[in-house]
């Protein structure tokens, strides 16, 4: 058990180290960051000053070891123009993203699983087919397209602006983007929970429970659904892991001031430290979500615990 946990943690560490290194490499090989940061017609002098501020005038390996050293000391660098630490920029924006991502996940989970269960219990009839049709639509509909449609219909049809309200995170403001963001995952949760429940319902132990005289409702609630929920944990883990990265497009469309927006602007302004930290944070979220799923499986599935 300890071995299992240690090896999982070690893998997580290696993954993060690789991510950090790749980000370092990609940023430096997609054009000179200092030149990209200075205004387009800036004199060489200004570009050089930016390079110095960023430490880009040093040899690559020195930059890399400094970078790693700083990360291990918990120093993730500063945005050159504002002098703010990338971590504080990120933390400022995190609540908005968590609010949006969390709510959309909640919507996706409750609506998706409910629809999936309803569809599974009405397998083959009109209800099932409409749920499946909806989930294909929801899954196939690109976020930005649906978001734009929502915004434009709201404005032109109902004279109502559905975008973000600036720095204030109102619950009315979060609903349209959360619904948009949740739509696609609602589709996948519906499909996934439907097929998982159908598979479980047909497992021998459900039939055996029936043979023991256990009622249909109880078989469903106490036997089929808990087992059907196990594979969903993986999906929820993926959703959690993608919480930050997944909302980039939706945040742009709805002007929702979250990490996604920060990432886009940091890439545009070549705010290296912030880009590096956000990518690292996204990777870390993914890695920790995976760890969480692994440990969650330990808790909910006794079969895994035994291995």
């Amino acid at each position: 058990m300890t071995g299992f946990i240690l090896s999982k943690l070690f893998r997580a560490f290696i993954t993060l180290l690789l991510t950090v290194s790749l980000v370092f490499i990609f940023i430096r090989f997609s054009g000179d960051p200092a030149a990209a940061m200075a205004p387009p017609d800036a004199p060489q002098e200004v570009i050089d000053q930016y390079a110095e501020k960023l430490g880009l005038d040093k040899p690559l390996w020195v930059q890399y070891t400094n970078y790693l050293g700083q990360i291990f000391r918990g120093d993730f660098g500063y945005s050159v123009d504002s002098g703010r630490s990338s971590v504080s920029l990120f933390l400022d924006r995190l609540p908005a993203t968590l609010y949006l991502g969390g709510l959309s996940l909640l919507i996706a989970l409750t609506v998706g699983i409910t629809l999936g269960t309803v569809a599974a219990l009405n397998r083959g009839n009109v209800l099932d087919r409409s749920v499946m049709a909806f989930s294909v639509f929801a899954f196939a509909m690109p976020n930005f397209l649906f978001g734009l449609a929502v915004i434009l219909i709201g404005a032109l049809g109902f004279q109502t602006y559905l975008g973000g309200q600036g720095a204030t995170l109102s619950w009315i403001g979060v609903l349209p983007p959360a619904l948009t963001l949740g739509l696609a995952s609602t589709g996948s949760y519906a499909r996934f929970s439907r097929s998982s429940l159908l598979e479980t319902i047909n497992k021998p132990f459900v039939l055996a429970a029936e043979a023991r005289g256990i009622s249909r409702t109880r078989r469903l609630v106490f036997h089929a659904m808990p087992n059907a929920a196990i594979p969903l944990v993986t999906l929820i883990g993926l959703s959690l892991g993608g919480l930050i990265a997944g909302s980039v497009v939706t945040e742009q469309v709805f002007a929702w001031p979250g990490v996604g927006q920060l990432l886009v602007r940091s890439v545009a302004t070549r705010d290296i430290a912030t880009v590096q930290f956000i990518v690292l944070a996204i990777a870390a979220t993914m890695v920790f979500a995976n760890l969480l799923v692994d440990f969650l499986y330990l808790i909910i599935d006794p079969r895994i615990r035994a291995q």
Partner: peptide
Amino acid sequence: DAVASLNPIK
């Protein structure tokens, strides 16, 4: 299959 006829997580 007796194992399969029991709920694996209870």
